[in-house]
């Protein structure tokens, strides 16, 4: 019995952690290539609106999810053209993408406010899913959760086990040196930005299709920013992104339960708990820095213009 309660808690934490995990993994790849994309929140919220709208129109969660990822990718393509192609300031362009995404999402989702859909279907394998203690956790999630976990493994493998991943990390470390070696700095960065945008859009679609299956304006509620912080918190390592997302998800679930249990604290203070936990984690992490080298990709946020 207690095992089932423990399982339920882990399942809810994982659900709260999934959108952060997916968005943060995308941003991790972008930042590893040396680009700082502050537009994650905008790409996420646009993905949520477009994903929900398309899912309502087509009746398919899968097509909705793909539409969410696609719109995130489209917005990031604009960001990529500005920052990688035209060497515009990354911070300003990223902030502009967030504002643009929030505005566009209101427009796209205007006709869908208040509509309800069935949440994304969960996996059900007779026998296995009914296993006590771990059945729901391992065999009863929706597709987004499995996709998120697969992304953790995939991004990890890509960055440290493939040549393309090595080139991406090298470009994020020193774009002048890698350019001198004849590597395609701008192409790699642009592709990384597209990947990050698609991940942000997918994370947004998860919110409106699975986590809370409806569309409400600005429903991401700052999760894009948390995802950005998570990348730093995770010191640009995918497995630590998973841990950080679980920690943040845990804090979210904890504050919901604390509110339900009627602690004497005001609800707003409890709602701030996950954010405070993130700040605390960031501070603790930066205290325990390693000696020499740098944790962050050395070229992060610096624009690159080759002359030819």
């Amino acid at each position: 019995m207690t095992l089932d309660i423990a399982q339920m808690i882990v399942v809810t934490i994982l659900a709260a952690a999934t959108p952060l995990m997916i968005a943060a993994l995308g941003e991790l790849v972008v930042e590893r290539s040396g680009v700082l994309n502050l537009g994650v929140e905008g790409m996420m919220v646009l993905g949520a609106a477009a994903g929900f709208a398309v899912a309502v129109e087509t009746g398919s969660t899968l097509i909705g999810a793909m539409a969410g990822a696609g719109t995130g990718l489209a917005l990031s393509a604009l960001f990529g053209i500005l920052t990688v192609g035209l060497a515009a300031n990354q911070v300003a362009s990223g902030l502009a993408m967030t504002i643009l995404g929030l505005g566009l999402s209101g427009l796209v989702g205007a006709g869908y406010v208040g509509l309800k859909r069935e949440p994304a279907p969960h996996l059900y394998i007779p026998g296995l899913t009914d296993l006590p203690g771990i059945g729901r956790l391992v065999f009863g999630q929706d597709g987004f959760v499995y996709a998120g976990l697969a992304l953790v493994a995939g991004v990890s493998w890509f960055l440290w086990r493939t040549r393309a991943g090595l080139i991406l990390r090298a470009i994020g470390d020193d774009h002048t040196a890698t350019h001198a070696l004849g590597l395609k700095v701008r192409k790699v960065r642009f592709l990384a930005v597209l990947f990050g945008g698609a991940c942000a859009g997918l994370a947004g679609a998860y919110l409106s299709l699975a986590y809370t299956p409806f569309w409400a304006p600005a429903m991401t509620a700052g999760r894009g920013w948390i995802a950005l912080a998570l990348v730093v918190f995770a010191s640009w390592r995918p497995l630590r992104v998973l841990a950080g997302a679980m920690l943040f998800g845990g804090a979210t679930v904890l504050q919901l339960h604390a509110q339900a249990a009627g602690l004497g604290l005001p609800g707003q203070a409890l709602s701030a708990l996950p954010y405070l936990a993130t700040i605390l984690a960031l501070v603790l992490l930066s205290l325990g820095r390693r000696q020499g080298g740098s944790l962050a990709p050395a070229a992060l946020g610096r624009v690159f213009t080759p002359h030819r």
Partner: peptide, 23 residues
């Protein structure tokens, strides 16, 4: 052989060399 070395400081020696070696 570059004057201002075209090396990525946070990568290892082998990784820096692998960047230009055949796939």
């Amino acid at each position: 052989v570059f004057q201002h070395f075209s090396l990525c400081e946070n990568l290892t020696v082998a990784e820096n060399i692998a960047l230009v070696m055949p796939r």
